[in-house]
């Protein structure tokens, strides 16, 4: 019945550079990259924000991410796709050093944020610049206002009062498209909001500190289609002043929101390029099989 057997795993060369779709320079090669790609969403990507060089992540003996090199640019949505367990979430969590919380996780390779090694940054400072939205909407058990204010409050002895924070909170909620829905009930518990609203509150919380990069780990997988559409539209709007990396299982979503798409398989970065090319003219056999739904 199955005529097209997937090729053996090891055919993907671990040490080989990822297959890069034509029309785009290799990731490290500066940002003339997208010029050739006829992307209908935007013409030009901004400067490089994060650079991954030979990034590997180990869980004990198991190498979850293998020698991945990528660049993340301002004004661009990078969608990470691949089957479950391919390392895309691990890769994402490595970018703000959240994998360090996992016992036994080790990292190799370099991650640069605006040219600075993230290991040289204080982890709290890094995470304010590289914010994250999780799979499950996870507002804190406090009021809507406090959820956003919590992110804004510096860890200093002097705690800014509400009058200082209010405009910043409003700004964050507006950018997350939630302001009109919650402006009259800012002191209501955040957990009373609907799932989609909760997730947008989490986005507001994440972008409140004006991060340079926003990481999203399957942000819509716990939401209904309408909330998903709202979030996807929001991603499109936020893109203008952020670099966004989104992990998704959903290939339609990757196509809808992604400017660039990276396909990962068993820890390897198999292919990286503009969304259209990954989906319409993939170079690697694996990618072709995956986007056509042969496996995954």
């Amino acid at each position: 019945m199955i005529t097209e057997q997937p090729p053996p795993i090891r055919k993907i060369l671990v040490d080989a550079p990822p297959t890069v779709a034509p029309g785009i320079a290799p990731p490290a090669g500066g940002h003339a990259a997208t010029s050739g790609a006829a992307h209908h969403r935007r013409g030009e990507a901004g400067p490089e924000r994060m650079t991954l060089q030979g990034l590997s992540v180990f869980y004990g003996e198991n190498e979850a991410v293998k020698q991945v090199s990528l660049s993340i640019r301002l004004g661009e949505v990078l969608a990470l796709i691949g089957p479950s367990g391919c390392g895309k979430t691990t890769l994402l969590r490595t970018l703000n050093r959240l994998t360090e919380l996992t016992a036994g996780a080790q990292r190799g390779g370099t991650i640069l944020l605006d040219g600075t090694d993230v290991d040289a940054l204080e982890v709290t400072a890094l995470r304010r610049r590289v914010a994250m939205v999780f799979q499950q909407p996870n507002p804190f058990p406090m009021s809507i206002f406090d959820n956003v204010a919590y992110a804004l409050r510096e860890q200093s002895r002097k705690r800014p009062g509400r009058s200082v924070l209010a405009p910043l909170v409003e700004d964050a909620l507006r950018r997350a498209g939630l302001w009109d829905e919650v402006k009259d009930k800012l002191d209501a518990p955040a957990l009373r909001l609907s799932g989609g609203q909760q997730q947008r509150l989490c986005i507001a919380r994440a972008i409140a500190t004006r991060p340079e990069v926003l990481l999203m780990d399957e942000p819509c997988s716990a939401l209904d289609p309408r909330s998903t559409a709202v979030i996807e539209q929001l991603i499109g709007e936020l893109r203008s002043d952020l670099a966004i990396v989104i992990v998704t299982h959903n290939m339609q979503q990757a196509r809808r929101v992604g400017d660039k798409v990276a396909f990962m398989y068993l820890g390897d970065l198999v292919e990286y390029g503009p969304a259209e090319q990954i989906f319409d003219a993939p170079q690697a056999q694996r990618t072709r099989d995956y986007v056509r739904g042969v496996f995954g």
Binding site: N96, L101, T124, A125, F134, F140, A151, Q155, R205, A206
Partner: peptide
């Protein structure tokens, strides 16, 4: 759940701040 703690760490909060405020 663990992801609530991670959400706080993800906002650049320390462990102590997470315990106290969340």
């Amino acid at each position: 759940p663990a992801h609530v703690r991670e959400a706080s760490y993800g906002l650049g909060k320390t462990k102590i701040a997470t315990i106290r405020r969340v």
